[in-house]
Write a protein that binds this DNA or RNA. Structure first.
Lengths: 127, 127, 127, 127
DNA sequence: GTGGTCTAGACCACG
DNA sequence: GTGGTCTAGACCACC
């Protein structure tokens, strides 16, 4: 369920946190569903439990999961939060698009790219 | 001409390199134009000369400038390179758009966003 | 009668103990009144009996209840104890007020807050 | 400047973070003042650098300091943030006062306590 | 020299 | 068995 990309420059704990965030927001993981325990996931990914712990701490701090000591971590699903997250993503996208334009990429190229990616995504989702 | 944002999480050398890259690709800096000397820019930004040095090294490695020992650093303008850079940017954009879609942002929202940003950019460019 | 807040960071046994403590000191639970049995309460709250056990142990240790083997747990009501408890609370309040002052909250703000809360509490108590 | 209380139940990193927060909000530490380096403070308090690191990470996340890699951590001073922090403290105070009232502490006792603490604080501040 | 990440392994509190 | 904290020590990126 979780894949670590060691070529990715971002820290491992961030990759893990982002991955779960995706699973939660997209609805693949349901409300109150239990996340894998810190230790088990650590073994599975063969990384240190501390690293998982940190990813989970991040997710809890950001409101995506809640922790019950002695029981585990569970999905939270806070719609309001999801909207905030969406806005953050769009903001970042804006920054990125502007950067593209400033470096001379044409409007048409951007529109094309967007169309293609959306098409890909849909066919992928069907499979 | 160069502004450092200390709140930005990216390393300083990267900020500087990116800024010059923008100036070069957008054509503000012309072919064979001289970049500020390492020492002068270091004083101007009151940062360590090593940091400037590294930014310039990065730019040279990526083919945006060329270095003449004892004379300075100069803009290169290699069209083929610009295309590579464009592709890199579009690749990154693709990744980001996919991320948006996976987190439940609708196609229409993305298209809207793109339109708005492009409009903004054009009016901004006129001013 | 007892509500567990899983968002609360404090351990469950502490929440339960505090809740009973409130009921006892406020007089809602009378002297020699029987507390729910460990097992029944555990089932009712669907938590581990050990947790209830620990809450009761805490209450007994602090002198709020007494245990009769094979019979159950009963409210104690020891006025002297209540005074100790009061002092503990006031001590904690003192620490907190000092913290407020150190962080630049004005005397007037604190007094205002106190007045408002006391007013609220009285009208609430009447209802 | 920093004291760790090993009797305090709260984690060390939290104590350290709170202490700096106090110093910053109260104005003892000025804008852009440098905090002790992670390693130096670790040696001084004879605790592990990771623990300091975590305290600093917390402070940065909460907006009290900013980090410049390779240089150190510096005081931020964001007035808006301070107001939020003040409200948080008052909220907590409210909760606490209510708890006192519910456990039968009289209004007069609370008012007295407040007066005394404020007096203490003032004379202490003069010294 | 600075901060940031990660591992290995320990201990504690909780259920 | 669960998560939370801490230590010791290593390595990296940055300045």
């Amino acid at each position: 369920m979780i894949i670590i990309d060691y070529n990715d420059k971002r820290p491992i704990y961030e990759q893990i946190a982002e991955r779960f965030q995706n699973l939660i927001i997209s609805g693949v993981m349901e409300k109150d569903e239990k996340l894998p325990s810190v230790r088990m996931l650590a073994v599975e990914l063969s990384i240190n439990p501390n690293t998982i712990q940190r990813a989970y701490a991040e997710l809890e701090r950001d409101g995506f999961i809640y922790t019950v000591k002695g029981r585990g971590n569970f999905v939270k699903r806070d719609e309001e939060l999801f909207n905030k997250q969406k806005e953050r993503l769009l903001k970042e996208l804006e920054r990125h698009i502007k950067n593209c334009l400033r470096q001379g990429i044409k409007k048409e190229e951007l529109l094309d790219k967007l169309q293609v990616v959306m098409m890909d995504f849909e066919t992928e989702a069907m499979a």
